[in-house]
Design a protein around this nucleic acid. Structure first.
Lengths: 164, 164
DNA sequence: ACCCCGCTGTTATGATGTAACATTGCCGAA
DNA sequence: TTCGGCAATGTTACATCATAACAGCGGGGT
């Protein structure tokens, strides 16, 4: 994995960290990943990725559109959805199904479905990578003789800060 | 739990079982549950529940609407969404977030979030109740100091029949 | 008789997502 | 150099999913 700052890219840190660095890290990593694959991270796609990364909260496609339109007047829904589809296919963002919204991926590059903790109070959403949970999902599917492919795991509740 | 036929109410069985009995069981159980709670399972709501139970595939709200309108010309979107909201609040159906569709609950009465195996080929969706997976979800949230409430678990892939 | 309240009716609109075809710009082959 | 192909983007229109807001109706209690 490319070098990156230690505490960045985690939702827990979102109150305290330097978020500009956090975004910059994500964009830099995205460029590296795409360059290594020959995938075209165009200015438009990179701009959409940057908008998604503006916070650690899932962002709706039309919110992305509104923001994008400030600098790109031609933006229309297909513009945004195409960019989001590209970013998802490259594993740079995830869709949060229970919110119909999109979130930057903290493990970009490695294909995975993602596991999310969504605070219903502040909206901050943390992507976790929990090997035991992953195993439990695989085992559960296996017990049911089901060939699992994509896994949606979204736990909503209260983050530590909001619960306090 | 009320007495009910052994192989009913499972998606695996959906190719072979007597689905009329399956629906009847679900409706009977729903009536019992609502009666026991003083919840009003009106004819309209029961009809919607019956429509959702017509198959073991998640059904969209507008598909419910189309079907409902055959016997109930006044049906409009709010009619359906209100009934679906009621049925969800009573734990009689689940929403499948990744499909924006609704499915009869096989463990009606006990409040739970549900874990689903969704076949991308045939659409059949099985609700599983996997204690180990449940534990793994709780543990994962706990490790992240997150107070989990609602859990969305939807694994899509191929059911045993379609994989063969 | 009257009110309250839950359920349903009704109209309109908001929010999310996609189909289909046009245009642009680059790059390689002839 | 010109042309043809192809990926990305532009553009118009529409499909799909969901809810706001207010009206009407009917049963149960006082």
């Amino acid at each position: 994995m490319a070098a990156r700052g230690a505490a960045h890219n985690t939702a827990q840190a979102h109150q305290t960290h330097n978020h500009r660095e956090c975004i910059d890290d994500a964009l830099k990593r995205a460029r590296e990943i795409c360059a290594g694959r020959g995938a075209q991270l165009t200015p438009l796609r990179e701009k959409v990725l940057q908008i998604v990364w503006r916070s650690h909260k899932p962002v709706g496609a039309y919110d992305v559109l509104d923001e994008l339109a400030r600098s790109h007047k031609a933006a229309r829904p297909p513009t945004v959805y195409r960019a989001l589809d590209f970013l998802m296919s490259e594993g740079l963002i995830h869709k949060i199904e229970s919110l119909n919204a999109y979130l930057g991926c903290v493990e970009a590059g490695a294909p995975h479905s993602g596991q999310f903790l969504i605070c219903r109070q502040c909206g901050a959403t943390e992507e976790i990578v929990d090997a035991k949970l992953e195993t439990a999902l695989d085992q559960a599917a296996k017990r049911a003789h089901f060939a699992g492919e994509r896994k949606v795991v979204e736990i909503s509740g209260l983050c530590a800060r909001c619960a306090a």
